[in-house]
Amino acid sequence: MHGPASPGWLMVALCAATGAYCLLRMRGTTGEQRRAAGAEALMGFGMAVMAVPSTAFTPPGWAWAGYAAVFGAAVLHALWAARRGAHHLHHLMGAAAMVYMALVMASAPGHHHGGSGSGVPLVTGALLAYFAGYVLLTGARLVPAAAVAAGPAPPGWADRPELARACRLSMAMAMVAMLLTM
């Protein structure tokens, strides 16, 4: 997204690290957890690429159509998978937000976003409300999971639900930051 360079690079690092961890989670899980980790890895890496500051690299105009196509396919996949579980609705919202941001960026390729009034304020506001609510809800769910000190031996790193929640939380916070620059 277009904004100050330092926060942009921090967001790139956060999203890339989250995407890398989700790839590692794919190796340690099977079935539905593996598919969810794959969708989250795609989201993390896609957000990392989109968050590269425009002072370092401005993608060509056709790249935004590519983003929209990739995440449009992710929307369809999440919509299909939502038949099996509610968690896929969050993947659907994330992919839809990425399509929306790509379309907004494609419609104003030479403009820097961040208070310029581009995009559809109603859609941006609805996405901001969803992701801000998701951040609050996931953060509240994460606290009790991390506060458990005693109990059975901890599962393997890929099977720890609090780590998966932390990944989703960091990507939702990054999504809020990216939407605020629209």
Rank of each mutant, 00 (worst) to 15 (best):
M1E: 09
H2F: 05
G3K: 04
G3Y: 01
G3R: 07
G3W: 02
G3Q: 10
P4S: 12
P7Y: 03
P7I: 01
G8Y: 03
W9V: 12
L10T: 06
L10Y: 11
V12T: 05
L14R: 11
A16V: 12
A17S: 15
A17G: 15
G19N: 04
G19R: 02
A20M: 11
C22H: 09
L23C: 13
L24Q: 09
R25C: 12
M26R: 12
G28M: 11
T29R: 13
T29E: 13
T29S: 11
G31N: 11
G31Y: 09
E32T: 14
R34W: 12
R34N: 06
R35V: 15
A36W: 00
A37S: 14
A39N: 07
E40W: 14
E40D: 14
A41N: 06
G46C: 06
G46Q: 06
A48L: 05
V49D: 00
V49P: 00
V49M: 13
V49F: 13
A51V: 05
S54Y: 08
P60M: 09
G61K: 01
W62M: 05
W62G: 01
A63E: 04
W64I: 02
G66D: 03
A68S: 11
V70W: 07
F71C: 00
F71H: 03
G72K: 02
G72N: 05
A73E: 08
A74Y: 01
H77Y: 15
H77D: 13
A78S: 15
A78Q: 01
L79A: 15
L79Y: 13
W80R: 11
A81G: 05
R83N: 07
H88S: 09
L89Y: 06
H90P: 00
H91D: 09
L92Y: 04
M93L: 13
M93A: 15
M98N: 09
M98G: 07
Y100N: 00
M101L: 14
M101G: 04
A102P: 00
L103Y: 02
L103D: 04
L103V: 09
S107F: 04
A108T: 03
P109F: 02
G110V: 00
H113G: 05
G114I: 08
G114H: 12
G114N: 07
G115A: 06
S118F: 12
G119W: 01
P121L: 03
A126I: 09
L127P: 00
L127R: 00
L127I: 07
L127S: 06
F131D: 02
G133Y: 08
L137A: 14
T138K: 01
T138N: 05
R141F: 10
L142A: 04
V143G: 08
V143R: 11
A146F: 13
A147T: 08
V148C: 07
A150R: 11
P152K: 09
P152H: 13
P154N: 07
P155W: 04
G156Q: 10
G156P: 04
W157L: 14
W157C: 07
A158R: 01
A158K: 01
D159W: 11
R160I: 03
R160A: 13
P161A: 13
P161T: 10
P161H: 08
P161K: 10
P161V: 10
L163I: 07
C167A: 15
C167D: 09
R168K: 12
L169R: 00
M171W: 02
M171P: 06
A174R: 01
A174G: 14
A174K: 00
A174D: 03
M175C: 07
V176A: 05
M178H: 03
M178N: 03
M182E: 07
M182P: 01
